[in-house]
Write a protein that binds this DNA or RNA. Structure first.
Lengths: 339, 339
DNA sequence: ATGAAAGCGCTAACAC
DNA sequence: GTGTTAGCGCTTTCAT
């Protein structure tokens, strides 16, 4: 059986398609009697607008896509959890894509307009893409970038002040009296901009305290996963002069590091204090609970969606801006011990 | 500037739109010379098909929607992580929706066809919906249901054998010599079908071992989160006769339970052994690592997508079937201790 | 406030 | 193998 169309409704109600459209979309003012007639016809026929047809006619899809490197990384899933309701509130559905951090995949997503018309805008959290790559893109696509990037003026960037946040984390370690502080997660290459900001914060905190940085205590990792943290921590412990505190570039890394420490019979924070980054839910329930930097995810989500809506709605190009969400230091057991 | 259309390409190449369409979609065979001409024109104009127009013409959107209760629950994000690539392989994009377990939201998603045409099919993991509710739905929407449900014949259901899996978990606790085994997570009401299967497995294992079930050791929780596990465990420990083992209905519940135990200075598994369900990544890195039932998530994802593709592709209604993915018991430190 | 009609850009009968 | 053409169902300009 054919689906009932707007035209069917118009016929039954004895009005033109135009009027039905007006009623459905609440555009122009319609007489109450007309509206009622139309609504009765809609109800009677069980009419529901064909979104596909509307999309073609309007040239908009009512969808945005959110691109993250890994969906099963708690930070991203928690962020997505916040983005989806915000987008829905704005009348948009959310498509999700994950790139596995693959630079080629990421590049194709922002350059190719193949799927351009499938979504009206994109919220993108790049991983394998350098700042350079980010600028070679389809300018027509409204874009908001998350994470540790800098806007080149053609898109908005929403993040927290990573250097300040990292510095606060390390300062906290210094304040509780630690003297040999390591960092796990550096990525000193073009696509590692995110990590490098953390490292700069690490250095800044040392400088502020008048402490020298032991470069050998800055450990690189390919990713920010538990296994990376576990491995790096093991390497640190195998040295002659292990650290008494570690700034981990994510809570997952911290979780992995703690795992290694406990497995070797060391105590956290008595022997080694640990602080992470992201404030994922795990960190609040592990043993010990993980001290961390908490980015305001709700604010990030809302800001990103709001800016994207603004871009989508604006006929002229909107200049790209840098937007900072709040963050705060949350000390927990992994630096303060059991209370 | 207007976007270049298929018609522009046809004109430049000196062929009909039909032929261009054929080339783009690889439908009918096209002469090599013609194809080359067309492809050159496409490249020259930077033509890219308008997906919206194609959608309207074909009546299909090339999108499926995956609906889960909570995106930031590791089990679901891990599942989604597996579903997305599987769907992409089949040529589909994935829309994501989360319901917060809200029955009204869930019901509207499967009944209202308002957004029907936005996706060709749905993979749905209901939470607040009873089996009853599930049957009152838009029959036109190809649907695959995940989790602990039963197909009513109009949709497919993909899950694992929850009773057998739960029974295996509890049998494992019995085998390691535990005698007072509790269960955390029961939900003895219409929307708690999932939990009830686990409880049945709990009973089955006791029966198989010729043990009576202490009904007072079956603790209900509203959800399967860490906080629920932590609270329920505390209640169990406050009793005169605490258990020496607990079967938790999810790894998150197990994680919460362990949190409470350690906080009270009890040892896991020496004092209380814990086994969970889901095999989320956290469980492999906590301290202790969590014994669990591991559903084959990749298999679930692939099976669900395959079945959905089959439903979408079939003109006649496809009879709904029950599909079981594999599961296995993974004993870890929370029952076996440190190795 | 409502009607008539022209597309939106593509697909797919139907011919040749 | 390729051209012709009629929609897909809606929005929206232009009249009235």
């Amino acid at each position: 059986m054919r689906e009932t169309t707007l035209r069917d409704v118009a016929e039954l109600a004895g009005v033109s398609p135009r009027t039905v459209s007006n009623v459905v979309n609440g555009y122009a003012r319609v007489t109450d009697t007309t509206r009622e007639k139309v609504e009765r016809a809609i109800a009677q026929l069980g009419y529901r607008p064909n979104v596909l047809a509307r999309n073609l006619a309007t040239g908009r899809s009512g969808q945005i896509v959110v691109v993250v490197p890994y969906l099963d990384t708690p930070y991203f899933s928690e962020l997505l959890q916040a983005i989806i309701p915000a987008a829905r509130e704005a009348g948009y559905n959310v498509l999700v894509d994950q790139t596995d951090g693959d630079p080629a995949h990421e590049a194709s997503l922002i350059s190719q307009g193949a799927r351009r018309l499938l979504f009206d805008g994109m919220i993108f959290s790049p991983l394998g893409l350098s700042q350079q790559d980010l600028s070679v893109r389809d300018q027509a696509l409204p874009l908001v970038v998350l994470g540790e990037r800098t806007s080149d003026g053609t898109f908005d960037h929403v993040g927290i002040d990573d250097i300040a946040a990292s510095s606060a984390a390390v300062s906290h370690l210094i304040e509780i009296g630690r003297t040999r502080i390591a960092a796990i997660g550096d990525q000193p290459y073009p696509t590692g901009e995110a990590a490098q900001l953390r490292t700069r914060g690490f250095r800044a905190a040392h400088a502020a305290a008048g402490r020298p940085v032991d470069e050998s205590l800055i450990i690189g990792t390919a990713r920010f996963n538990r296994v990376d943290g576990a491995t790096a921590m093991a390497a640190l412990l195998d040295r002659a002069d292990p650290p008494d505190a570690v700034f981990c570039y994510s809570d997952l890394v911290a979780s992995g590091a703690i795992h290694t420490l406990l497995q070797r019979g060391l105590r956290v924070p008595e022997d080694v204090a640990i602080i992470g980054y992201d404030d994922i839910e795990d960190g609040r329930y592990g043993r010990p609970t993980i001290s961390t930097i908490s980015p305001d995810k709700k604010a990030i989500a809302r800001t990103a969606v709001d800016r994207l809506m603004l871009r989508i709605g604006s006929p002229e190009p909107v200049p790209g801006v840098e937007l900072r969400a709040a963050h705060r230091l949350i000390p927990r057991e992994s630096t303060l011990g059991r209370s």
